[in-house]
């Protein structure tokens, strides 16, 4: 009975489906367009006269002989040394994620197992810290960092990103550890383990799903950051996001915009792969905080 009724197309369903379809086009089209266009020359990518030029690459054929060109990528990666920024980003992101997770698991576990009032206040403070625009903190860093001569280096940026990451990591791992039954570590302690041994031998082996999910979001925060990396890194230590912004500063010269387009596509690729492999974890992480309201 149910199938016959449910498979019928009602007007409501048609509206719902077309809304979803419209959204999916709006969500995906900009990425497809930019990806396709990144293999063209600038006069095709910005083809005011005839937008189909961007599809068939009329000017690209005229200028380079083929419908696709890697000029933008060559310019960005080799001429502008984008690979250097990629290495910097790799270093910053790797260490930020590893350190944040180490600090966060210890702290999140403690907060989840402590019923004292100060644990609550710490979580509240973390919530306020989480809400603060990052740039407000950056204005507090600059002067001391210049004075101590630690401005511009990768380790400084890593530790700042770790700190900015902590409120979020704490909240997420705290709610994750709450879901691990208390009895597990407490029975280990009855058997004579210290708290740390119980953590090490009982909790660590079962915590990986939560840690991976939290790690994904730490990765995104470090990778996507612009406010901190743009202000705290010197030109030679720039990560990819401020580097893309610097490309733009020198642009509007013929061809240079395509460097930025190629860099933008290169910067999106890792995120695409990340979603491809970790879609389930990302979705569960997004909603983890929501379950408790």
């Amino acid at each position: 009975m149910a199938t016959a009724i449910e498979s019928r197309m009602t007007p409501g369903k048609i509206i719902a489906f077309s809304l979803v379809g419209l959204w999916l086009v709006i969500a995906a089209f900009p990425f497809l367009w930019t990806f396709w266009g990144s293999f063209k020359v600038q006069s095709d990518f910005f083809s005011k006269a005839d937008w189909t030029n961007a599809l068939w690459g009329t000017n690209t054929i005229a200028e380079t002989g083929g419908a696709f060109t890697g000029q933008g990528y060559f310019g960005a990666w080799i001429t502008e040394e984008f690979w250097q920024n990629v290495i910097n980003s790799g270093i910053v992101v790797f260490f930020t994620v590893v350190i944040s997770l180490t600090f966060g698991t210890l702290g999140g576990y403690a907060l989840a197992r402590s019923g004292f009032r100060y644990a609550f206040w710490l979580l509240m403070a973390a919530l306020v810290f989480r809400a603060m625009p990052h740039i407000t903190l950056v204005s507090g860093y600059l002067l001391p960092f210049f004075e101590w001569n630690i401005w511009g280096h990768l380790p400084t940026t890593i530790i700042v990103l770790v700190a900015i990451n902590q409120p979020f990591t704490l909240w997420m791992l705290h709610s994750f550890f709450l879901n691990i039954p208390k009895d597990m570590d407490e029975s280990a302690m009855v058997d004579g383990c210290t708290r740390f041994q119980a953590f090490r031998h009982v909790i660590v082996p079962v915590m990986w799903p939560g840690v991976i999910t939290t790690g994904l979001f730490s990765f995104l925060l470090a990778y996507n950051d612009f406010a901190v990396t743009a202000m705290l890194l010197s030109a030679e230590n720039e990560t990819i996001i401020p580097a893309i912004n610097s490309f733009l500063g020198t642009t509007q010269v013929e061809g240079k915009v395509m460097y930025a387009v190629a860099a933008v596509v290169s910067a999106t690729a890792p995120l695409f792969v990340l979603i491809l492999f970790f879609q389930r974890q990302i979705v569960s992480g997004l909603t983890a905080g929501a379950v408790k309201g």
Binding site: A110, R113, A125, L137, S139, G140, Y141, A163
Partner: peptide, 28 residues
């Protein structure tokens, strides 16, 4: 959890937050 153990567990994250979030607010 005892106060002492709690302190050691929370120390790394707390010092990161105090040094790079709370103090910068003071500095700002």
């Amino acid at each position: 959890m005892k106060h002492r153990t709690f302190f050691w567990f929370i120390l790394p994250t707390l010092s990161a937050m105090i040094l790079f979030i709370a103090l910068p607010i003071v500095s700002v």
